[in-house]
């Protein structure tokens, strides 16, 4: 057995070592308190912004010339340019300074009566998505009167119908 006189000093040394290690651990970990949850906050804001923009576009007109909302007539007339302009304007507009840099890609989902399946046609986009974007999905139901004379793509039934406009929205 070796000399055991210094046991208290050993214990004190151990305790001090633990304290220093844990302090270092806490100091290091406070810099990374940015939690995985915090990344979702910007997603939530983007989702809300996109939903609000679509909702504004789908608000019915009060003017006498047409009771249709802007989005209704855009989808009905397949007016992709107007959609791109309006949507980008709503999303990227700011109170002052430069415009924001949001990009989008839009698809429209509809139900096909003969096959009773839900199909999709690509509507428009501001830039082709590469697949690497961190995009959020926002949607809006639109009621379209695509009876005879409607100019939606040929594969869409000619009837009054509800379609779902899906927008992928991301910050460039």
């Amino acid at each position: 057995m070796v000399n055991s006189e210094g046991q208290l000093f050993t214990i004190e040394g151990l305790a001090a070592g633990l304290i220093m290690l844990l302090t270092a651990f806490i100091v290091v970990s406070t810099t990374s308190i940015y939690t995985p949850g915090d990344t979702h906050i910007s997603d939530m804001q983007l989702e809300q912004l996109g939903s609000d923009a679509l909702r504004m576009m789908n608000t019915p007109n009060t003017s006498a010339d047409s009771a249709e909302s802007a989005l209704q007539s855009i989808i009905k007339n397949n007016d992709t340019d107007r959609f791109r302009e309006t949507f980008l304007w709503f999303c990227n507009n700011k109170t002052g300074g430069a415009y924001d840099i949001l990009q989008f890609s839009t698809d429209v989902y509809y139900r096909n009566t003969p096959t009773t399946s839900v199909n999709r046609f690509h509507f428009t986009e501001s830039r082709k998505p590469t697949g690497g974007e961190h995009a959020v999905r926002v949607t809006e139901w639109v009621q379209v009167d695509n009876t005879a004379g409607g100019s939606m793509p040929a594969e869409v039934d000619n009837r009054v119908q509800a379609v779902l406009v899906e927008v992928l929205l991301w910050r460039d």
């Binding site: 939690t35 995985p36 949850g37 915090d38 979702h40 906050i41 997603d43 939530m44 989702e47």
Partner: peptide
Amino acid sequence: TVVGQTTAEGVL
């Protein structure tokens, strides 16, 4: 960190 994530997911 776990709490922050579940809260954000719950809202999303």
